[in-house]
Nucleic acid binder design. Structure first.
Length: 245
DNA sequence: AAACATATCAACCGCACGCCT
DNA sequence: CAGGCGTGCGGTTGATATGTT
């Protein structure tokens, strides 16, 4: 419907944010909040479009952002959540406190996807030199041969685990078995929280996002995940080693 | 040391959705 | 109900960092 571009390009700054801009943005949001991103840059005196301000705040300036490398547990969690949710980065991020969708997306594309790729053929023509070298230290989860994660879970389309595609999602869950206990170690509390959150979306007192916050329609998608979860036998059957912790 | 290749990540773009009038 | 608007999301790009030859 022929809408105007998000911001007039004229006179608006783009590219990396300066510390000064960051300071202005943070100060303004702390004082006035961010009820209207579109109006915010003008009010704050920033030569940025609202979208840019929002992105900067969400991804880097929010006080609850956790900086630094992802832990092994976080990476494994992302892999597992990606199995369940597909490329729904915001939903995945909602289950990883302090991490942003953008960050998770980057980590997925730069690290985790490689982990899940079947072992590179020894075909000499394939790997470029740097890639071959770089992948070695990523010693971790290399799924074995035929049980490796199916490409569907790596698809760039969110339809890969569409709510209507129960079989695909189920098989993704079943493939979780292909993680050895050594390769896949997640703190038990993480999963009990994560999965409980998925099941009990009405608990708003936890401080965690509800299903609605995650963009999951409670009437259909939540039923789907609940059903799927129950089919998998719940946490106990799904990730038994977690409970041993 | 230089040139090149590759990895990483911050930021942008365009679309879809929901709310409001 | 249709259309405008603001926001959020996922995909992609581009600059920079780092490693290799």
């Amino acid at each position: 419907m022929g809408r105007a571009p998000c911001c007039e390009k004229m006179g608006l700054k783009r590219g990396p944010w300066t510390p000064e801009e960051d300071r202005v943005l943070v100060a303004h949001i702390e004082r006035h909040g961010h009820s209207n991103w579109r109006a915010l840059p003008k009010q704050a005196g920033l030569l940025r479009c609202g979208k840019s301000c929002r992105l900067r705040w969400i991804n880097y300036l929010r006080p609850d952002i956790k900086r630094g490398n992802f832990t092994r547990e976080e990476e494994d969690a992302i892999i597992q959540l990606h199995h369940m949710l597909g490329n729904r980065w915001s939903a995945i991020a909602a289950r990883l406190p302090g991490r942003t969708d953008n960050e998770i997306k980057n980590v997925w594309h730069t690290h985790l996807k490689k982990r899940l790729e079947p072992k590179a053929p020894t075909n000499a023509a394939a790997p470029k030199r740097r890639a071959a070298k770089k992948q070695q230290p990523a010693e971790v989860v290399v799924l074995d041969g035929p049980t490796a994660v199916p490409d569907q879970s790596l698809s760039t389309t969110t339809a890969s685990v569409a709510p209507t595609d129960y079989s695909a999602a189920s098989s993704s869950l079943e493939n979780a078995d292909s993680f050895s206990s050594e390769e896949f170690q997640i703190d038990g509390s993480f999963w009990s929280e994560t999965l409980a959150m998925t099941v009990d979306s009405s608990d708003s007192s936890s401080g965690m996002e509800t299903a609605d916050d995650l963009g999951v329609s409670s009437s259909d998608d939540m039923d789907f995940w609940l059903d799927l979860f129950m089919q998998a036998g719940g946490v106990e059957n799904y990730l038994p080693q977690i409970l041993e912790d």
